[in-house]
């Protein structure tokens, strides 16, 4: 067992994370998509809210069961497409992806540009098949509008 790093100190963004978690923890959860999912109330998205939304989509679409190693950019696109269909503004969707997409910013050299492109691409109609070849081979194309329509899903 190797101790590969040991240096005392607070995580610089630890307090911001805690604030967002406390903010979201106040009202009891009533729905997996309870957090600011109306276009009239965009508001700031907390990390916990974003994670709840993103994970609800993942669970509903059985992402991890279908794709052992998901291409997260594809999942981001699906989440963005779904949120657009719910009337979410672009800025809100970008915030959700930034906060909740696993390992974000991954290897993106321009994270902001990536988020803008993803949301812009999501605004176009679904081509009816998965964008990623690996995903297309692994399972039937996912039509996000129908995959997300069941509001009883998620956690």
């Amino acid at each position: 067992m190797k101790l590969v790093h040991a240096c005392a100190g607070l995580a610089p963004r630890g307090e911001a994370l805690l604030q967002s978690l406390r903010h979201c923890a106040r009202p009891p959860p009533t729905s997996p998509f309870r957090c600011h999912l109306t276009a009239t109330e965009p508001g700031p998205t907390s990390a916990e809210e974003a994670t709840t939304i993103y994970q609800s989509c993942m669970k509903r679409w059985h992402i991890l069961e279908r794709f052992p190693q998901p291409d997260w950019s594809i999942v981001d696109l699906w989440v963005a497409r779904y949120l657009l269909s719910q009337g979410q503004p672009d800025s809100q969707i970008q915030a959700i992806l930034r906060l909740a997409s696993p390992h974000f910013p991954r290897r993106h050299g321009d994270p902001d540009g990536y988020l803008r492109r993803t949301v812009a691409r999501a605004a176009f109609p679904s081509p009816g098949r998965a964008v990623c070849d690996d995903h297309a081979r692994a399972a039937a194309p996912l039509e996000t509008s129908s995959a997300c329509s069941n509001s009883t899903g998620g956690r």
Binding site: K2, H5, G14
Partner: peptide
């Protein structure tokens, strides 16, 4: 690269054990 991403996000770990 998870630990590097943690640092990039301001979630710097104080201890990492392999």
């Amino acid at each position: 690269t998870a630990v590097e991403v943690m640092r990039a996000n301001g979630h710097d770990p104080c201890v990492v054990l392999q």
